[in-house]
Amino acid sequence: MSHQDLPPKGGYPALQWKRNLPSRGFRPSIYLAIMGGISLLGCIPLTRGIRERREYQREKAWSRLYLLPLLQAEFDRDFVRRSTALEARERELMKDHPDWADNKPIYNDGRARIPSFAVLEGQKKAYFVYSDESVDVKEAAS
């Protein structure tokens, strides 16, 4: 009989059949969970910051509310001054026209309105930065 090959004593060494790749870390779902957790934690300072910013805006708004009557009162005096001057100017301009109804309001609801158009008289300044000497300011304004 011929000799048959036999395994070496102690058997063959283990055959590496599995790929030897480095570990890829955790499962994807764990990474997703970690990310969600970080986002949730970040929501806490985010919410605090949004609330604080809202308080800043409210602080600014109340500051403006406290100043509003003061600014409005100043503007009202200026409005009365300007509108009285405008009416006087109108009266002076239209004194020779018999059809002119003095100080007649345009609307019948009795409200005071800021005029849409105003005739303004310019006053020349003593020095010019951008000046066009050929234009007569009084003529251009009238």
């Binding site: 001054r81 001057a85 303004l120 310019g122 300044k125």
Partner: peptide, 12 residues
């Protein structure tokens, strides 16, 4: 600007 636009009329 080369000129002001001002209404110097005082309050009544």
């Amino acid at each position: 600007l080369p000129y002001y636009v001002a209404d110097p009329t005082p309050l009544p």
